[in-house]
Amino acid sequence: MNSGLVSTSHLVLGLLARGERHGYDLKREHDLRFPSARPLAYGQIYATLERMQRQGLVDAVSRERVDGPDRTTFRMTRQGRKELTTWLAEVETPAPFVTNLFATKVTLALLTGDEGAAADYLRRQRQAHLARMRDYTRVKTDPESSLSQVLAADYALSHLDADLRWMETALDRVTGLTEEMP
């Protein structure tokens, strides 16, 4: 059950941990706290809440009608809290297989016999990565940024940095390859 992705139900449980909310609040809070994630769709939230209600993870506490559709407020059940606690404590399997578009490109460039193109690609990719890192660094140093934005930026920066280190090594290997040739 550990797919490495956060399921919508765990997201919902996490957001309900601080008190009851209706679907609209959940969407707003999610999108605000996880600005780099894909925004949650209403349909997805309501479908998830319904399923979670059947599973006994959440309860509908009130329903009000404000000229228009029903607005149901949900709260986490004891079972829901237990599920959340378990999930939060669960160690995630480090991704055993990373789809690495960069490595694939370099390998394919080398297979076509074009080391120059591979090295060139790596250098330009490096530039693009660094530009992205500058964006995240700005987010991080902006006094207006929230802690969750800073944490997300730190995470992205570490990953981009890891890519860059790989590119550095790859570049050395690729240029080494060219120099070995007569």
Binding site: R134, T137, T141, S158, L160, D161
Partner: peptide, 9 residues
């Protein structure tokens, strides 16, 4: 360190 370099323009 590229993370340091990212502070620059």
């Amino acid at each position: 360190d590229t993370r340091v370099a990212a502070y620059a323009d």
